[in-house]
Each structure stands twice: as structure tokens, then as C-alpha cells.
Computed example of a mutant assay.
Amino acid sequence: MHAPEEGKLRVGFTEFIDLAAENVGGRALLASDEFFAGKENLLKPGRGVFIPGKYTEQGKWMDGWESRRKRVPGHDWCILQLGLPGVVRGVDIDTNHFLGNFPEYASVDALEVEGSPPAESLVDAKWTRILPQLRLQGGSRNLFPIASEQRWTHLRLNIYPDGGVARFRVHGEVRPDFERLMRANGSVDLAAAENGGTVVACNDAFFGPKDNLILPGRAANMGEGWETRRKRVLPGFDWIVVKLAVPGTVQKVEVDTAHYKGNFPESASIEGCYLREPVVDFANAHDIAWTELLPRTKLRADHRHFYESELRAQGPFTHVRLRIYPDGGVSRLRVHGRPA
């Protein structure tokens, strides 16, 4: 394992996208035991809920993964397939609502394999430990940074000796098949999270997390987009910066306001830039030479807006900045182009 690159230590790892989340394709494949509560709950949104008086035939209903009390030596484990393979910067082992039944310790192993092999075949695979056995606190988010620069496709959460975990978050940086992107004959979505696009900064994400903007598929509801609070000081605008998967020329842009009806932005504009060195603080980086890609354009409620002939520049760009006037919600931003 190696120390994280300089600069990445400045950002709390929970700012990175959750590589294992259900809504990006993460899957809980196999668990040693899930007697009280199913492994799939680990990757669901939110922190889990507690419903007093709710029971099943197995016992108390719990919103998480919970194994039975172990009466023999050993520990329990759960194997997960990342929805977005990549470099893990840290994990959040959330024991929310698990108080008298949380595991005393946990560790995490990692694996990189091609394709989707049968889960049973992974049990005895050559796993690499990326988080040593560490003590957990009950009813808490247990945050542990990971110092590994390797790309992983699967993780194994080990709990000692047994118990319940509400949610398991795997924050990191997507590492897609870059060779496939570079070979692409047609255009690809250079901003998409699954292709390696990253939301690096925004000025506000009060109602909807910044990473929602570039997740796979269309948003299922208003809670699955990027949404800012109501702006009380006018004039003004909100903004969000996306680092493209690879530098590329832009051919078509989509701004989707799906589900935003009484709170969609009045208008939007898009700019691009080409940066050869990383920028940590976009809010105060006033010397960046932004190029207008899409001039300020009126938006419609709950609508997919496509722009092609309207684009005033093609790049190549490494980053794009979406401005919304004055505030509101955008569910998805797509930046279709060719790797440069």
C-alpha cells in the first residue's frame, strides 16, 4: 500500500463518490450469514431507519445486514461487487441503530477480477487486506481512510465476531477501462461517473448531493439530482465543476431537469477549460481561463434539453462548469464527445 497522492489528503474522503452504492450498480453478492437482516441493505441509500415494534419470523426487523449470534469460533463476512470499479479512498461502516448488537471489530479485503465470476468462486480468491481489524462504535458512522492506489472491483467486509451493520459506503475514484474510451469511434459521455468523470466542486448542494449530477441512468425522483437552496441574494447563480474522464472535444450536451417542476433553474450556461495541473479550490481559482461552451439559455421544467448546434466551442477541455440561474435543481448533465 502507498500513501495517497499529495493534494488528495486535503479532501475528506467522504467527498468522493460511493463506488458501491446500489444506485451505481453495486451488489451484495454473498454473506456468511444474514439470518436477521439481508446483505442487500448495506448498499441502500440513507443511513437506515428503526421501526419500534416491527418484527419478522426471525426476530427484530432491522434496516441493515445482521448475522445471528455466533456460537462457534470465526467471524462473519459479506462480499460486494463495486458498481464503479476504482481506487478506494476510505470506507464508512455505519452501525446506525445497532447498539447492543453491532460488531466489536471490522476489517476490509479487496480484489480485482475481470467480468462477473460466480460469487462462490470468490470466497477463496487471493484477497488483499486494505483495512486492518479495527474497533467499531455502535450507532455511529465509523470512518476509516484507505491508503491504497490499486484499482479494485470487489470488497469483502469482515465483522468480528458477528452482529449488524446498517450501511457500508466505499468512497473513492472511478477507474474505468480507459483503453476502451480512447478506442471509442463514436462519442462517449465524458462526464459520466461510470466513465471516470468526477464532480470536483460546487458552491451549494443543500438538497441534492453533487455526485448525483453524473450518475448512471435518469433520476427516479427529485431526490436523485443536484439541487441547491433558494437564493435570497440576487442577482447570482450557482455552479458545479465536472472533471471529464479524459480530455476531449465536446459534440453534444444534455441538461436534464427531470422531476424539477417548481424548482428548476430559470436558465443555465456551460463553460469549459483545459487544465494541465490539478486545482484544489475552484471557488477561489480566479485565474482559470474558462471558454464559453453554451451561452446562458432558458430551461424548461422536467425536460431533457439537448444542445449541439448551439455550442460555441468544442475544446478540447479537461473540465466543464455548469452555471444555473439563480438556483434550483438539475438531475443529470451529459457531455458527449471524443477523447482528445
Rank of each mutant, 00 (worst) to 15 (best):
A219R: 04
N101I: 14
F36P: 11
N203D: 08
V91G: 09
R135K: 15
R10K: 11
F264D: 13
V335S: 07
P247Y: 00
D124P: 05
F306R: 10
T95C: 13
D94N: 06
G164A: 01
A193F: 13
G86E: 12
F144R: 06
V242K: 04
G217E: 05
G90T: 06
M222S: 08
T228N: 11
R69C: 07
L136T: 09
N203Y: 05
G48H: 05
E179G: 03
A21T: 14
P209H: 04
I51L: 09
Q133P: 01
E277M: 06
V242H: 02
W152F: 15
G196P: 12
W127H: 02
V123P: 03
C202Y: 05
Y55M: 08
V320D: 00
D177H: 08
T14C: 10
Y325L: 10
L122M: 03
P209W: 01
L111K: 05
H259F: 10
H319W: 00
V330D: 00
F98T: 12
L299Y: 06
G262P: 02
W152H: 15
K243S: 04
V87I: 05
G48I: 07
F35D: 06
P316A: 02
L181T: 15
I79C: 01
T318R: 01
I270M: 05
E173T: 15
R89L: 07
G262K: 06
A20T: 12
M1C: 01
A192C: 15
Q251C: 01
D238Y: 00
R334K: 07
N212G: 08
L294R: 04
N212T: 09
A31D: 08
A313I: 01
G53E: 08
L82C: 12
V170D: 05
R169D: 14
E120A: 03
